[in-house]
Write a protein that binds this DNA or RNA. Sequence first.
DNA 1: ATTGTTACTTGCATTACGCAAGTAAACTTG
DNA 2: CAAGTTTACTTGCGTAATGCAAGTAACAAT
Lengths: 151, 151
Amino acid sequence: MPVKSKLKRRSGCPVSIALEEVGDRWSLLVIRDLMVRGFRTFKDFQESGEGIATNILADRLRKLEAAGIITLEKDEADKRRVNYRLTEKGIDLAPVLLEMLIWSVRYEETAAPCAVIAQMAENRTTVLAEVRRRWVERDPTPLLPKFGENT
Amino acid sequence: MPVKSKLKRRSGCPVSIALEEVGDRWSLLVIRDLMVRGFRTFKDFQESGEGIATNILADRLRKLEAAGIITLEKDEADKRRVNYRLTEKGIDLAPVLLEMLIWSVRYEETAAPCAVIAQMAENRTTVLAEVRRRWVERDPTPLLPKFGENT
DNA sequence: ATTGTTACTTGCATTACGCAAGTAAACTTG
DNA sequence: CAAGTTTACTTGCGTAATGCAAGTAACAAT
């Protein structure tokens, strides 16, 4: 189910194309928050602790929507509210994020408990299944807590 | 074997930390080229077809070295030449790149043959073992060709 | 009716990037 | 061995992206 885009690509290399969509400091963090922290609204992201500027956040949400990675849903109960949600394409970035997580914990001093992540590295398939289950069922319970925020 | 760094991090989240090191449009492409295309020198990257500017390339190589992802080796035969090489930390980004590749081929119109990548998705472990083997043995034979360059 | 909340936009200073050109050291060629 | 070439960069400069503070419009709560 590939989607045609602006056709202004550096090359046809898949990795290059992927990086044009999510290769920046913020996009994958937004996706991570939608995926494992149960974030839904603009406010959630603003307060995530990483300190993304609101203009950048708005821009990234727009681009991720344009790329077909997230969708917008108006909240019927509170009409100011916009709920962001990963698409199938978006949730399928889970393996990328998981590998990045495992790599980072292995080589950096992170705030994540090594034991928990080591456990996840052992059971990649199970973790991915759980991530997808939450997505399908719209279960907003965070899979992982916020590690070492700096507020 | 985590390495201490500048301690100017947005947060302690592993994904966030990883993105501070390789979360831009170019770093992972450089790593990809070292990993699967047998690139070694500055020139190789310049001519890779994606069109990275030399100042940006120099900057990225410096940052990747600072992050412990690549190392420099002076060529004894030709002393102008600098050979860049992935460290263990660098080669361990292979799973991230592989998942990104698989994702991209699935959702974008890339220049990579779907069948080949589907095959790789079936045999992730084998592919990763082969990537590592080439790294250990310093075998510069490209694992994958250049897909759809735009020159 | 007033105040607060949500999802943004706008303006402006700073930083990063992209492009063309330049340079220094090492090698190669005549 | 002088002159050109290759390699790995750096420098300058214009444009684009980012970060920060403030503002706004629509809706909701009191």
